[in-house]
Design a binder for these strands. Structure first.
Lengths: 352, 352
DNA sequence: CTGAAAGCGCTTACAG
DNA sequence: CTGAAAGCGCTTACAG
């Protein structure tokens, strides 16, 4: 077992200094501190009370926690199953809330008794992941990608299928295709937005800013997008949603307004779990198994910790694209439908 | 701060014995062990490394973890928000998996660095909660009720509204009302089942075992129940679901089979979050705010820990009943609809 | 089944 | 900015 004593020997300092470095005593020389922490990380140090060793896996948010989103709750379920094998417990924690500004990430995690972390991050906090990797603390980032060779991640790669999804709509005859995504700037949604634009571009369809909609990841957000799309001049005939809740909310709103899917509007969703089967019609969707991603991340990380070997994983799991009943050819009488709107509400329901 | 030393003084033993009792050394006399652990609980003991004190709140399953169920993920979200105020971290752990058979619950929690627990439990493991309370470890049980005066709980009480829901169906004219619940025997579902029977009984409608359906809490489970209900002789004209996912799955399946809601069948759901708004028609539902329950539990427990005062909370938060569009009068031609089924699939869609 | 004493891991007041 | 030494909380080999 790694201890202050063994670290002291390796760092060529006293155990006093090691303890100070670990506890962020400002008296300690920054260079010394860094050397000590690097060694602590290399040797898998964690403070122990007698024989007692905490085997906690951190499930760490760099920003706000979003545990109740379908993606996160499925991931967390997978993480717990993955942590089971090596008998780790999962500690939920939040860097934004709890990390003291002057302590390093390693210091923060060690203070919490965490041996390794699975990190959920937003676009702006990517750099935090790079900093943690730089310190050498055992980590796997979930659902982000990094070019730096020292950052481990497991990523659901939805780019190819997002292009495929949009091109599928184009092949059906759609030319006005809207894009809906959520307001948290994470990489997944950026990917899907880029793919959306790329697919349009490849097929000679001009990108139109008016067709891009951003809302909070709620059913209400999806409903709002649907209403906005249906009420605009020269409206879209299809929507590609980058978020499951937005897609479900839009379908629901369409029913409420008596708008037929796919006769009046085609919808492609995104699904982290099996929500696409929860609505009618079943949503044509780009899909990933969030639970499997979480399981994989936790299993790999805990095995690594148990075996005391450092490896870097950079894994991209491709999504899959499923065609169901929410997509079809665009309505033929779209111009009329848009124009004969007398008192604000068009009568949709193209069929019948 | 409570320490082995202070406990030793109070218990009239040496610190050696205290340490042994805490660590479950079999050599220690059971009576002594019990006395020491009781004092440890009373004084809020938790092992510390130097000044370092872990402030972990345990989110503990007595059986299988069900983190991905909408109820649990909403509760967990609330628990994290509630734990924020007093800056506790949340440790997910599982008694079934990790507790050694010979250690007490207190020993188990202290070993994990947990100061207080929020417990999720099943019918059969209720007694575990009573045992934890008996040991005196700080705990709040979520979504169970206890008559023992020393067990704290926060419970969403759905009994009155479940009766109201079934009576609402009866008032609409329904006489054959099915009941669908999930296969995990928790108290909530038992409550709702009892309420269902009580409502029938109060209104002179005989209970029929054939109308009770139990499935795993999945969309597929709900779909199965709907298919079974629709295909039975002398079928039900309404279903009361005790689980959100079952209700949503049933609605979806009805759409797929072209069965109109509520024209062909009325559906009352149960909703822990806002899923009722995710389907069409919006589900008439018995509702509770699972996130609020979790928040309340975590906030009360952590405040209690911070203030070092022991209180017992026995709180029942009533659900609320919302009528939406999934319920209506029963179909008039039900007998014919049941009989003119030639090749196995009746043509429903009463309207039109 | 229990305790005095040695010892381990860590922190910290004191000294430089 | 650093370390030797005292000290704290805990565990454990030894003794009874």
């Amino acid at each position: 077992m790694s201890s202050v004593r063994s670290i002291a020997k390796l760092a060529g300092v006293s155990i006093t200094t090691v303890s100070r470095a670990l506890n962020n005593d400002p008296a300690v020389n920054p260079k010394t501190r860094e050397r000590v922490l690097a060694i602590a990380n290399r040797s898998g140090y964690v403070a122990s009370v007698g024989r007692r060793v905490n085997s906690n896996l951190g499930f760490v948010y760099t920003d706000e926690s979003t545990v109740s989103h379908p993606f996160d709750s499925a991931v967390l379920d997978g993480v717990m199953r993955g942590a089971d094998e090596q008998r780790y417990d999962v500690l939920l924690t939040n860097l934004k809330r709890d990390k003291r500004p002057d302590e390093s990430y390693t210091q923060f995690f060690l203070r919490k008794g965490i041996r390794g972390v699975i990190v959920r991050t937003m676009r702006e906090s990517r750099s935090i992941c790079e900093a943690i990797a730089e310190e050498g603390f055992p980590m796997i980032v979930l659902s982000e990608r990094f070019s730096a060779p020292n950052v481990s991640y497991i990523d659901g790669d939805s780019r190819a299928d997002s292009i495929r999804a949009v091109e599928y709509l184009i092949a059906l005859g759609h030319r006005r295709i809207a894009f809906g995504f959520h307001s948290i700037p994470d990489r997944d949604h950026m990917d899907r937005f880029a793919a959306y634009k790329e697919a349009l571009d490849k097929n000679g369809i001009p990108f139109d800013d008016m067709l891009v909609f951003r809302q909070r990841y709620t059913l209400a957000g999806g409903a709002t997008i649907l209403k906005m799309v249906m009420s605009m001049k020269n409206r879209a005939t299809a929507i590609f949603f980058a978020d499951p809740l937005l897609a479900v909310g839009a379908v629901k709103q369409a029913h409420a307004l008596n708008i037929a899917i796919p006769e009046d509007i085609s919808i492609v969703g995104f699904d982290d779990t099996d929500l696409r089967y929860g609505v009618h019609p079943t949503l044509t969707s780009v899909c990933q198994d969030a639970g499997a991603l979480g399981f994989e991340a936790a299993q790999r990380l805990t095995r690594m910790l148990t075996n005391r070997e450092k490896e870097v994983f950079q894994i991209s799991v491709p999504t899959f694209f499923e065609v169901h009943e929410s997509t079809g050819v665009p309505p033929t009488n779209i111009e009329e439908a848009n124009s004969n709107d007398e008192n604000g509400m068009t009568q949709y329901k193209t069929a019948i």
